[in-house]
Structures are given as C-alpha cells and as structure tokens.
C-alpha cells in the first residue's frame, strides 16, 4: 500500500471512506459507503502497528469486495495512528470515540472508553462536540490488560471472567490498583483459599471504582455509553452501573466505536458537506 493523496469526490459513484483504529491490543477498521457502515473488522494488533492497520483494512475491504483504490479518504486513530503511512489524516481516539458514540446514539453525553491499555471518559455536548475528557494515568491499571492478567491468574478464559464473577454473592475487595501488585494480591488470596468467583467480582468492582473517579473528574451527564473492548465484559458494565447508579448503553460492537468515529470524520471531511 502506498502513499496517496485524498481527493474530493463529487460524482454519482458511491463514495467509500475508511476509519482505522490501532490500539494497544486490537486494531479495527470500519468502511462507510455514502456515509453508511458497510463492514468492519477486528484483529489483534501484535507487534507491528502498521501491519495491523493494513491487515484490519484488508480484512474489511475483502468482506465488502472493495479495493484499496476505492477508498476516497482514510482516517487513522488510536495510539498506532502515527505509524500508518497511508492515512490521510490522524485524529486522536478521544475525538473519534466521541464521534462514534454520538453517531450510535445521539442521546449520549458521556462516553466511557476502556481499551487495552488506557481508559478515558469523554464529555459531549448536544451537537456531539467534545467538551472535556480525562484519561487514566500512566499505567494500565483498570484496563483490558488488567483483566487479561487477572484472568490468567484466576485460570479462567477472558470471555468467562464475567460469568465467573456472576456466581459470587459477595466480592472480595482488591486494594491494589497497580496491575502487578493486584496480581500478587490475587495469587496470595488464592493461596489462602479464597473463592475465585468472589475475587473475580472484586476485580470488576475495582475497575468500576477506578473508572468512576475518572468519570467524576470530567463530570457525569446522561446518557452514558461504554465503548472499547472492556465493554464486552458484562460484569464490569454491571459494577459500573451500580457504582454510578445509572444505566449504561453498550453498543453491539463496542470495540469499533473509535474506527467508526474515524470513518465518520473521514466521510465528513470528504463528502458530507455536499450531500447532506
């Protein structure tokens, strides 16, 4: 894939644009045709951001029977956005998740995005414009990585962590927020014969507690949507709903919200002004 220049397309052919989100653990691509989602892909990032972007985009194009040359504009986002040479524009995941979430539900005013290695809370206004945001501090505490490490410690598949937690009637509280220390804490709890389900529930509550402080930092406004891979874990969503005392909207594919936002911004950049 080579470098190409974005060109404004105004003909009657359908216009296809792409959004690519390269995160720390997964990469997603979303294709829009005339402003509507045609397809998307989700793949693991691996060690090479650029390759991940290419793979995600290729997978999406193949499923829609499209060629690279069909793409009018490509917008890249996520921490790997800088290493995608064929992107026409690089926009941060904050703006993109905000845009994607607002498209999925225009009632959304607060977006909680928890990805592989960071978590962020984004406040939107009635037009979907980002008003404010907060991101977690430097470490990966309370993110997807944290859950991965804890699932390994508890010897449970990541997908089954929420189900395990649901079996518990109470939670064992985990006091360490640092992933490494929390893992040590879990290991010693297990050694002491603690119930795995109760530990799992405690872990989910600790993520909820950490995330809620981030929410309070930017201020809470309903409706609230959760995006990013961790939104697929129903126990985290439930714990967060209890903590914040409200219902959280989880879109069917929470992981693609960033790539969707990037694609929407690509579409706006290229053609939306002329067509809508």
């Amino acid at each position: 894939m080579g470098q190409r220049q974005g060109e404004k397309i105004t003909g009657s052919n359908p216009v296809v644009v792409a959004g690519i989100d390269v995160g720390s653990l997964s990469a997603e691509a979303v294709l829009l045709k005339d402003g509507r989602v045609v397809t998307f892909s989700i793949i693991p990032t691996g060690a090479d951001s650029r390759k991940a972007a290419e793979k995600a985009l290729t997978a999406a194009m193949e499923s829609a029977g499209l060629q690279f040359d069909d793409l009018a504009v490509i917008v890249a986002t996520g921490y790997g956005r800088i290493s995608i040479p064929f992107a026409h524009k690089r926009i941060t995941e904050i703006t993109c998740h905000g845009r994607g979430a607002f498209y999925l539900d225009p009632a959304v005013r607060t977006v909680i995005d928890i990805g592989g290695q960071d978590s962020k809370v984004i406040r939107l206004n009635q037009q979907g414009k980002v008003l404010d945001f907060a991101m977690n501090d430097k470490c990966a505490a309370g993110t997807g990585r944290f859950l991965e490490v804890m699932a390994t410690a508890l010897e449970v598949e990541l997908e089954n962590l929420a189900a395990l937690s649901d079996q518990a009637v109470r939670a064992i509280s985990i006091s360490s927020t640092c992933t490494v220390f929390a893992e040590t804490e879990v290991v010693s709890l297990l050694a002491g014969g603690a119930d795995r389900a109760e530990i799992a529930r405690g872990l989910h509550e600790s993520i909820a507690a950490r995330t809620s402080s981030l929410v309070y930092r930017v201020g809470l406004d309903e409706a609230v949507m959760m995006t990013g891979g961790v939104a697929k874990n129903s126990a985290v969503v439930k714990a967060l709903e209890e903590k914040l005392q409200l219902r959280i909207i989880v879109p069917p594919e929470p992981q693609i919200a960033g790539a969707l936002g990037a694609a929407l911004l690509a579409w706006e950049d290229c053609c939306a002004a002329g067509t809508t």
Binding site: Y79, I82, T92, I94, V130, M135, K138
Partner: peptide
C-alpha cells in the same frame, strides 16, 4: 514521557479547541 500518551492528550485537546 510516555511521549505517545502525552501527545494524544495534547492533540485531543487541540482538536477540541479547533472544532
């Protein structure tokens, strides 16, 4: 550092101001 994380915050803030 990490430069990427700080850069993302700065860029997101500037995007917010530009829009």
């Amino acid at each position: 550092t990490p430069a990427g994380t700080i850069q993302t915050r700065l860029q997101a803030f500037i995007e917010l101001l530009a829009r």
